[in-house]
Design a protein around this nucleic acid. Structure first.
Lengths: 207, 207
DNA sequence: GTCTATAAAGTGATAGAC
DNA sequence: GTCTATCACTTTATAGAC
């Protein structure tokens, strides 16, 4: 068994190409990206992309899977937490998403584009590590609704939470180009929403 | 002066190609569309596309402009109406958008993709027939806020209205593929929102 | 592993017949 | 106006040198 080298190995070529691919694919999509763009962005040659990843499509699938995971990871954990109330879950979900989206503002547009281009394919390829009806939050909501504490359709509720949280990032470039708002102004506005959205949603739940 | 023919002329070749282009571009974007796809979809030959529109890019620009207009038309009119209250404007806006989006569910994804790909280019090309600060609604809001009737930041308000109205259509394919919801179920849910969104927004305005 | 060179297929646009 | 055929160029992928 070989020992690991003592010092941190600088990023491998494979990893560098993958990162370059992530940047270019995320910005320009599959059809809009040429393997040459990725090669140039990575600082390596065209042939190396195929050496490491066999094809443009296989490399793209890897990026899609990564972004899906970024998008969905820890959501299940939040919704399945048996130690938090419904309201606390919404707060945690919104807060988690806004922090993540400020770090990765291009992901939602990318993910939605890919899904709209071919919903079935993405779901089969990514395994769709998603939110199903076994989640604790579903049981929790049913109990809550049974006690007649809210009449809002849970589909509207979840739609509103995700809409108010994610949509501003999808529409960000439009908003900024129209108002002259800087990236920092925009991020500050989004951070305000971490507290505001749960407040608005609470009002919806309580009629 | 030549007289117009008495009977309705059937759709011209030019118009048929444009409609085919609209369908294909809207679904697959600029880079993902081949001029051959448009030719096939239209039932005509490749060469005719260039005969009528000179290039793929020029044809694309026409489609973008059309969709921008569909997206923005009558919004200005609604917001500038001096005979309606703020609440009535929100109701009219949401109602108008939901009806339009049920008829054209693919437009928001297309428009947002194009804007995200190159915000400045789109705005210059489309003239961006948009909503500026001269609108009557701005004056109306300022008066409303001056009377201390609401403390909500109008940017959050407009973001919420647009998010809750438009985002479900962008995320529709994802939602439907996960829940097995049919197109009709989805549309019915959206129609419910014509009344619900203004109600929720009203609660936000009144703290 | 990484490069250059090139094959193989695809793509936007046009020439020219009808 | 509409078609077929083809040009000129791009793009993915691979072969083969180092």
């Amino acid at each position: 068994m070989k020992t690991k080298p003592e010092i941190e190995i600088p990023e491998s070529t494979e990893e560098k190409i993958k990162e370059a691919a992530r940047r270019v694919f995320t910005r320009k999509g599959f059809a809009g990206t040429r393997t040459r763009d990725i090669a140039e962005e990575s600082g390596f040659n065209l042939a190396l992309i195929n050496y490491y990843f066999r094809s443009k499509e296989k490399l793209f699938d890897i990026i899609v899977l990564e972004h899906m995971q970024t998008f969905l990871v820890s959501v299940r954990e939040i919704l399945n937490d048996q130690g938090t109330t419904l309201e606390e879950k919404i707060l945690a979900l919104v807060s988690h998403y806004i922090d993540m989206l400020i770090r990765n503002p291009d992901i939602p547009m990318f993910v939605l584009s890919v899904i709209n281009a071919d919903p079935l394919r993405v779901i089969s390829k990514s395994g769709m590590i998603a939110v199903n009806s076994d989640l604790y939050v579903v049981k929790q909501w049913n109990e809550f609704a049974a006690e007649n504490k809210s009449k809002i359709n849970p589909r509207h509720l979840i739609m509103n939470v995700l809409s108010m949280t994610i949509f501003p990032f999808v529409a960000g470039p439009l908003l900024r180009s129209r108002t002259g708002m800087t990236q920092e102004d925009f991020n500050a506005l989004m951070l305000e929403r971490k507290k505001l959205i749960p407040m608005w949603v609470k009002a919806m739940i309580n009629d």
